[in-house]
Amino acid sequence: MNLFRFLGDTAHLASILVLIHKMHTTKSCRGISFKTQALYVAVFVTRYLDLFYRWVSLYNFFMKLFFIGSSCYILFLMKTKFRPTQDPAIDTFRIEYLLGPCTVIALIFNYKFSPTEILWSFSIFLESVAILPQLFLLQRTGEAETITTHYLAALGIYRALYIPNWIYRYFTEGVVDPIAITAGLVQTGLYIDFFYVYVTKVLQGQKFELPA
């Protein structure tokens, strides 16, 4: 564990708490892509199957439980309590275009051709693009509630912090994970446009609005 990874995980944790907080305070999941949230459940469940056979640490164990539990809770809220505030008509990204290629790539790029390793690879690739339905929804509506942008910013910071973490690990432990690094760079790259608007508008106290 190093500071970059710990702060990254903290940002990830914070992003989820911000999202749940947004839903409870505004009594709405408006502006949130159900598809992205469902993809995150798939990501966590396929990646953390190792809960059953690999012990890493108490920290790792509880974080995994939290990510699986909280992502399922978010889906549950979106399908029950806040269902009327959800608009499937604007959440139209075709997730087949993500699931298909991620499956193929996971079958090609994995550390061992075994079910759990392939699922692990799949989860890494899927996480890198899982935010796309959300960014697509944002693009379609052209604006977002400030709290939703804080959620996205925290997620982006989490991804960004994993990059110095890998650099640090390479120099201190000699650990290199080509699959995680490649997917991680792609994932971080997807946030660049968002961050530009977030920094130039939201952090200056303006509303998040995309230029027409």
Binding site: R5, D9, H12, D50, R54, V56, S57, N60, M63, K64, F67, Y111, K112, W120, Y162, N165, G174, V175, V176, D177, P178, A180
Partner: peptide, 10 residues
Amino acid sequence: AADRHTKDEL
């Protein structure tokens, strides 16, 4: 590099 990966990240 595969075996040097520790799978301890979230």
